[in-house]
């Protein structure tokens, strides 16, 4: 027997059945290999369907399964836990010809991916509003807010966040998929076990990004006002704290 069974087996499942000839050949080999081929493809498709439920709601299970097989050829799973499989799927969809007439699909996938990140992130207590009592406007330069490990956010050139929200169960998906022209952001928070999400504007997005980058409160506030002049920062700030977007108020060293 030659060596290299494992590599030859994978080649055979990939279509080069002659590679496995020293171990098996003929119709029984083809039938058996087809079972492994189907199971492997179903595994990748099931994993992506679980990971991208909003995409599946738009395109249906069969479309997504076909996309999953094509995607797996370019981006096979790298770990046996498929909980974090699919990071590349959103970007990959922009190159997948059958998705060309649904330009919003990649953004829905990116939002589903952020949801997964929030779902699997480490536990941490949310920052209590009372912890902010020591803050005065003069001290903003000396403190920074640490994002909760489950907080995820992103900005988009259009209304993909509102479309994503409209597609969430338990309601039926909208008959017409309306994509607004105005740019929007979305933030996911998970202060306990349940994930919440809200559409946010450019200023809130910039504030969260500043906090995530380790900026002082003063600098993050400047970013927010630069992105959205006239923004009512104290309301935004209180809303994010109440939603559980942060875990700690830390003194800048």
């Amino acid at each position: 027997m030659p060596d290299g069974f494992h590599d030859r087996f994978l080649a055979a499942v990939g279509g080069d059945e002659a590679a496995l000839a020293p171990w098996c050949a003929g119709p029984a080999a083809s039938a058996g290999l087809a079972v492994y081929r189907n199971t492997t493809a179903k595994g990748a498709a099931d994993a992506l369907a679980a990971q991208f439920p909003t995409v599946e709601r738009v395109v249906g299970p069969a479309w997504l399964a076909a996309a999953a097989v094509a995607h797996a050829a370019d981006h096979p799973p790298r770990t046996a836990s498929l909980l974090t499989y699919g990071e590349a799927f959103g970007g990959w969809l922009t190159t997948f010809p059958p998705a060309a007439d649904m330009p919003f699909l990649a953004d829905l996938a990116r939002l589903d991916w952020l949801w997964t990140g929030a779902h699997l992130a480490a536990d941490a207590p949310p920052l209590e509003a009372t912890a902010l009592a020591r803050l005065t406007p003069e001290s903003f330069a000396r403190y920074r807010l640490v994002l909760h490990p489950a907080t995820r956010f992103a900005g988009f050139d259009d209304g993909a966040p509102s479309l994503w929200q409209a597609l969430q169960p338990p309601g039926d998906p909208p008959a017409d998929l309306e994509l607004g022209d105005a740019p929007e952001g979305l933030v996911f928070v998970r202060p306990g076990l349940d994930i919440d999400h809200r559409v946010i504007g450019a200023g809130t997005l910039a504030f969260l990004a500043g906090c995530g980058a380790g900026e002082s409160l003063a600098a993050a506030a400047m970013d927010a006002l630069a992105a959205e002049p006239g923004l009512d920062l104290s309301t935004v700030f209180a809303g994010l704290v109440a939603a559980g977007a942060f875990t700690e108020l830390r003194t800048l060293s």
Binding site: M1, H6, D7, W23, Y36, T40, G43, P76, P77, R78
Partner: peptide
């Protein structure tokens, strides 16, 4: 069974010659 080969995971339980 096996499912991992050089850092790529095949979501299945694959056979081998029992040598």
């Amino acid at each position: 069974a096996w499912s991992m080969r050089r850092g790529v995971y095949a979501p299945d339980l694959l056979p081998f010659p029992r040598t």
